[in-house]
Simulated scan of single mutants.
Amino acid sequence: MQQLFSQYATSEATQWLTEKQKQVQSSQTGKEIYLPFSAAPRYVGKAPLNPTSEELDQANQLRQGFKPDNWTTDQLARTILLLGLSGDDADNYSKTILKLFGTADMGELVALYAALPLLPHPDKFVHQATEGIRTNMGNVYEAIALDNPYPFKNFSEAAWNQMVLKTIFTGKSLNRIYGLDERTNPDLARMLSDYAHERWAAGRTVTPELWRPIGPHINETIVSDIKRLFASDNETEHEAAALTCYQSNYPEAQALLDQHPLLKHKIREGQLTWSHIGQKAITA
């Protein structure tokens, strides 16, 4: 991570971070992190990172799902400082991190939440992270929910479902939730279907991405929702309906898919995926 930082920061900023990192690493109490963590933007700037595909692959190797492509130099510097803290004593370590959370401004919160998958003792921060998804600060919420493997690994089913629903409610793409397909569950499918019905009753639309976690849990109630999608005039809703049916073993869902052989063929050939739907949602 230091190598990535040095590519986007000045030599002065790199020198400053190296000095502060050494101080943090040699700290017995962890208190040496507080001032540099707060001051980082002043010394290293806020230049956006533009990591290459190779650098993103290296980040993913560091922690599967870790994707710092929307980070800035100050965020990366703060993460490097966090990683310099000794994690030998789990209680002392978590107290230091939670104290940072307690006094953080928005930029510091973004750095802290996005760094969670890299920190030791991840179980110590579950309560903080689940409380964090209640925030009304968009940047902070995105740091937790999007391109972050921490929720996938650590959230309870209830917290996970709340996060997915809020992501839809706030108009963000489900395509950026790491582990979405692996953590689909019947309660989430029911919640999303109920949400769709509320929107429809109010004369409003729902994002086609909403149906992505529902496919494996189609039942006699939800299949009527899929029929509605196929009856729509919206091509993307047809595609979402087909993808949802393709993920299902429910006989009526399979029969519906068979009525749309071209969409079924595109799915089988990899020409139609949920990522394709997600890209449409971003550009809509």
Results as ranks from 00 to 15, higher is better:
2 Q>S: 14
12 E>H: 04
24 V>E: 07
31 K>P: 07
36 P>K: 13
42 R>N: 08
42 R>C: 04
43 Y>L: 10
55 E>K: 14
66 F>E: 00
75 Q>C: 02
77 A>W: 04
78 R>L: 07
79 T>N: 03
81 L>P: 03
83 L>G: 13
91 D>M: 12
92 N>M: 08
93 Y>P: 00
96 T>M: 06
96 T>Y: 03
97 I>H: 00
98 L>I: 06
108 E>W: 01
113 Y>C: 00
116 L>W: 00
117 P>Q: 03
122 P>S: 08
126 V>E: 00
127 H>M: 12
128 Q>F: 00
133 I>L: 01
134 R>P: 03
134 R>T: 10
141 Y>D: 00
147 D>C: 10
147 D>K: 13
151 P>E: 07
153 K>S: 05
159 A>P: 10
161 N>Q: 05
168 I>W: 06
168 I>T: 04
169 F>S: 12
171 G>K: 15
172 K>G: 06
174 L>P: 08
176 R>V: 07
186 P>L: 06
189 A>R: 00
195 Y>D: 15
201 A>F: 14
202 A>T: 07
214 I>Y: 03
214 I>Q: 08
224 S>V: 07
228 R>G: 05
231 A>S: 13
235 E>Y: 05
238 H>V: 11
238 H>W: 15
239 E>D: 13
244 T>S: 03
246 Y>N: 06
253 A>E: 07
255 A>H: 11
255 A>N: 11
259 Q>M: 11
260 H>A: 07
261 P>W: 10
262 L>W: 09
265 H>P: 03
272 L>G: 01
276 H>S: 10
280 K>Y: 13
280 K>E: 14
280 K>P: 04
281 A>I: 10
282 I>Y: 06
